[in-house]
Design a protein around this nucleic acid. Structure first.
Length: 486
RNA sequence: GGCUCCAUGGUCAAGCGGUUAAGACAUCGCCCUUUCACGGCGGUAACCCGGGUUCGAUUCCCGGUGGAGUCACCA
């Protein structure tokens, strides 16, 4: 049995779509599960769609997600170049296309855009007809072709598909798929600009690079039967196809830029951690036997069996991603969490307070880093709040007894030397015991005064620990004034 | 519209002829608690419809319905 070789073959056209990321992940997992090779190939045959910087995004994303390739433009494995425009420069694709022409499996086509368009419109009017090229140029004589070529007339090279019978191709997930040959378009192999089309370059390169498993998105499923004709014409072995189920948005449509979280970079910007994104995406269309949900990349390699992949499309559920992200944050070691959260904290409160302490408080209370702002903004300044915040049914507090409590407890805090959480808690516990109230009765008004918020990360003492004695007392006095002024 | 694929709770999904039809997210309730969160416990909620095959279908086959993908000198 030969070594498994898979490839990720993105086009440098922008951000990393999560569908692409998952395809890359699955290709990586299929290879690594069998101890095979995973390679990167750049499919840049469309010069018009090339986006500046897209290459860097591809490299960066693979690196950040840990999907390290064994071969690629930057890592020669002997079957390069790994960039299609470079391969094309040597006339590689044209050579193979011409071989097909000689065999009678392909032909020159000189039809211009206008003719092709008129073809389309006439066909659609007749209704029942199928929209494929009419093979007009297939019937050109040798002399006509040569004359056109000599005249420098632009041309493309098309494959000559059979018009009768059916073609069956096999996908390891979806099984056998049979289509009528009349449906098969004489697809273009070489474009008039000399570049190969995706369909052609893909087949040629996958063969030349020894790819054993072609992993790609379900949206290519319908073009797959055409490939068999190509492999057949060349006499090459057809690789194993693994088409991944579609990832959709909440309306069950193919995930698009419109939904706002369609790319890996979008998700990072929205405060998700890379590992959680990879983990979540792995579970979109695949599931292990024991239903484990939290996976490191290493564990995924171990557990991944692509035969357990699902066939039906999966909705990208941001809510579940958020949950998973929170799991990663909770499990993260403190220092790492601090480093990642630091920029978000600094953005709100600078370096005024001990950010380590604050990081500890928010760690179990956020799902994404973006929530940090709303969690800690009160440290910067107490927001405007209504005094009915002091009313809490369970704590049995209201504006009146809160005012009384704060006035009463203020001297206690003023005398308190040690403003650490533990010491404060101990002191206030004793105070509560003294006045024969439950601890919450004491804590609620204080927490309200120092934060001005309904909910806060941490309780009254933890907040005061961060604020320090001076600021805490300032805020409590302000709270008293606010209650008096009501 | 043609072709192709898909079909278990709101979502991700186990299941692969006989089950009280798992689990997770979300949701609801309770407990814990210095608020919230975390954590713990529990609840609500699903096999698209109709025919077969079979002693027995969520599971196999056919049809319908529904959804999606695709029909470029884009990938």
């Amino acid at each position: 049995m030969s070594k498994v070789r898979t490839r990720f073959a993105p086009s440098p056209t922008g951000r990393m779509h999560v569908g692409n990321l998952r395809t890359a992940l699955y290709a990586y997992l299929i290879a690594k599960h069998e101890d095979g090779d995973f390679m990167l190939r750049i499919e840049d045959t469309d010069q018009e769609r090339f986006v500046e910087g897209a290459l860097e995004i591809i490299y960066r994303t693979l690196e950040k997600t840990g999907l390290n390739h064994d071969e690629g433009p930057d890592k020669d494995g002997g079957v390069g170049p790994y960039v299609q425009s470079e391969r094309n420069a040597s006339g590689l694709y044209l050579k193979y296309a011409k071989q097909l022409i000689e065999q009678g499996d392909a032909y020159y086509c000189f039809c211009d855009k206008e003719r092709l368009e008129s073809l389309r419109s006439t066909v659609s009017e007749s209704g029942t007809e199928i929209v494929v090229y009419d093979k007009h140029c297939l019937h050109l004589s040798k002399e006509e072709i040569q004359a056109n070529l000599d005249a420098g007339k632009p041309y493309v090279i098309r494959i000559n598909m059979p018009t009768e019978g059916t073609t069956t191709f096999h996908d390891d997930i979806y099984g056998d798929i049979t289509v009528p040959n009349a449906e098969l378009d004489d697809m273009i192999l070489i474009k008039s600009d000399g570049y190969p089309t995706y369909n052609f370059a893909n087949v040629v390169d996958d063969h030349l690079m020894g790819i054993t498993h072609v992993v790609r998105g379900n949206e290519y499923l319908s073009s797959a039967p055409k490939y068999n004709r190509l492999y057949e014409a060349f006499g090459w072995d057809v690789p194993t196809y693994v088409h991944c189920p579609l990832i959709t948005d909440e309306t069950h449509k193919k995930l698009s830029k419109r939904c706002g979280h369609s790319s890996y970079e979008d998700l990072l910007e929205q405060g998700f951690v890379s590992e959680a994104i990879v983990n979540y995406v792995a579970l979109l269309g695949w599931c292990p036997e024991d239903n484990q949900e939290i996976f490191s990349l290493k564990e995924l390699v171990e557990a991944f069996d692509y035969r357990h992949m699902s066939k039906s499309p999966a909705v990208f559920d941001v809510v579940k991603l958020r949950w998973m992200n929170s799991e990663y944050l909770k499990a993260m070691e403190e220092e790492k969490f601090f480093q990642l959260a630091k920029p978000y904290m600094e953005e709100v409160i600078g370096a005024k307070y001990d950010l380590h302490k604050i990081a500890k408080l928010i760690k179990t209370r956020i799902e994404t880093f973006l929530e940090i702002r709303e969690q800690i903004d009160f440290f910067e300044a107490v927001p405007e709040y209504d005094t009915d915040l002091y009313c809490h049914k369970k704590m049995k507090t209201n504006e009146d007894n809160s005012l009384e409590l704060l006035r009463d407890v203020l001297p206690v805090l003023e005398m308190q030397e040690d403003f650490s959480n533990d010491a404060l808690f101990e002191a206030l516990k004793q105070y509560a015991a003294k006045i024969e109230k439950k601890i919450g009765y004491v804590m609620w008004p204080i927490r309200t005064a120092v934060s001005g918020k309904q909910n806060t990360p941490g309780g009254a003492t933890e907040i005061m620990d961060v604020l320090g004695k001076e600021e805490s007392l300032v805020r409590i006095r302000a709270g008293i004034e606010k209650l008096e002024a009501r």
